Simulated assay, not measured.
Amino acid sequence: MREKAARLQRSAELWQRGADGERATGEALDALPQQYWTVLHDVAWPGRPRANIDHVAVGPPGVFVIDAKNWSGAVTLRDGHLRQAGRSRLSAVSGVDAAASAVAGVLLPTGAAVTRGILCLAGDSRVSGMAGSIVVRSVSDLRDYLLSLPPVVHERSLPELADQVRTRLASAAVSAPTGAGRRESAKLPRPQAAARPAQSAERARRSGISADLLKLLCVVALLVALATQPQIFAKAATGMAELFTSSLQPDASTDPVSGSTDAPSVGTEKTKQARERKRSRSAQP
């Protein structure tokens, strides 16, 4: 139980540390000039209903998908390789790249062309540079970095782009808690009951196809046998004809007209004798 409590305590610390990093990153983004910048926090990941994106900022330099990290230990960026405490953080960089691609995928081409990903390091890390196509910045200089970028979106087009991002990225706050390590929200119940009719219909369709295929194979086998071994079917037809003919022939002991047998039965002979005796008595005086 102590070991379990220690694991839970460690997990709670990681979640709290991540929440602090997201909060610090959100405060840096909220400090951007509101007349030019639109900032969204904790939005749903397009195409992944159980995942979220920490922050999205829209301004004159374009659309920025920002993932906050509050790592402990030394963070270094050399030759495009990001490491934390000596371990490669390529998976984190790839995650930011995938999130930026997902956001760009739901925007119009003009918005998708100016969408980029930023990995923001909270805490005491002072790292800046590029890890592949992803910008790496510390939270302390995130605001100044965004303001230093040249504008690529016309001032008149900014409200339209901001509305497009706002309407196409739903909030994930109701389905995903805030904190470190949270990339997947609570599992949603699967609509199994709704899927059963479709599954039953699919099984019925497959069964029908299997039955039709079996019938077709039987017909093909019959035709092949008829073409290769015709004498077998000739013998079978002759046997069936003889059997049918023999079943229709009358028995030799049966009268074909009356249906009675040639030899009279015992009961019939006694009846005739009794009638003859009665006729003889009635004829005597």
Rank of each mutant, 00 (worst) to 15 (best):
S101N: 07
S148N: 04
D212W: 09
P150V: 11
V224C: 09
M130I: 02
V127N: 04
Q199C: 03
V220G: 14
S185L: 15
L214W: 14
V153P: 07
C120D: 06
S157D: 14
Q231M: 09
R168L: 12
A176E: 02
A180P: 01
P159I: 04
Y145E: 01
S128W: 05
A170G: 04
P189N: 08
T110G: 10
S200Q: 14
A225F: 09
L188M: 12
R168V: 07
D212N: 14
K187G: 11
R203N: 06
A195S: 06
A100S: 14
H154N: 03
S171C: 09
P151K: 02
S148W: 04
A211W: 14
A98Q: 03
V219I: 08
A180Y: 09
P189D: 12
P191N: 12
V127Y: 05
L121M: 10
P159Q: 01
S140D: 15
A211N: 09
G179D: 04
V103M: 02
M130H: 03
A173Q: 09
P197H: 03
A225K: 00
G123A: 05
T178K: 10
Y145A: 09
A204R: 15
I134R: 02
A211T: 15
A211Y: 14
G179V: 13
S101Q: 08
P191W: 07
T110F: 14
A201C: 03
S128I: 00
A112W: 03
A211V: 15
K235S: 09
Q229V: 15
L222Y: 11
L107M: 02
P177A: 08
S200K: 13
R190S: 13
Q231A: 12
V174L: 13
A131V: 12
V136A: 02
L216V: 14
P189I: 09
R205Q: 03
P150L: 13
G105W: 00
V165Y: 05
Y145K: 06
A131G: 00
V103G: 01
D141W: 11
R168K: 11
R166G: 08
A113G: 10
R205P: 01
V103P: 01
Q231K: 03
V136I: 13
V165K: 04
A99W: 00
L119A: 07
R116E: 10
R206Q: 11
R190P: 06
A113R: 15
